[in-house]
Amino acid sequence: MPQIVSANRLTDGIVVFLGQGDQWVENFRSAALLADKPALEAGLARAQDAVRANIVVEVAPMDVAETPHGLEPKHIRDRIRAEGPTVRLDHGKQAAHGA
C-alpha cells in the first residue's frame, strides 16, 4: 500500500506532509507518494532529519489509497488529520480546499 509521511510543524503544530526533497507541504495531495518499503524508509529518514533540525515533530506514516478523486488517506483518523474536524468544516485543511 502506498504511504505518505505526516508530521506536525514545530512552530505552530499544523499537520504537514513530506513533499519532494526536504520540503514539507500542508496539502496531503502534494505529498511525496512512497510506493514501497525502501521508499518509505528513505522518506522516514528524511523526516527524522527534519525532527533533528527542529522543523517538525511526531512523524507518522499514513496509508493512502488511490481513488477516482485522487489520493485519499485510508484511515478515518488520518482523514481527519489531513482535512480537519468533521464537525467544523470551516476549520482545518478542508476550509481551504472547499473554498
Binding site: N8, D12, G13, I14, V57, I80, R81, P85, H91
Partner: peptide, 20 residues
C-alpha cells in the same frame, strides 16, 4: 521534543491531531 514535552504538558500544551 522529548525534553520539552514534560514542560509543555505541565503548562497545558498538548499536541493534538491538527495542531497544539
Amino acid at each position: 521534543e522529548d525534553q520539552f514535552r514534560p514542560h509543555r504538558l505541565m503548562n497545558g500544551v498538548y499536541l493534538q491531531l491538527h495542531a497544539y
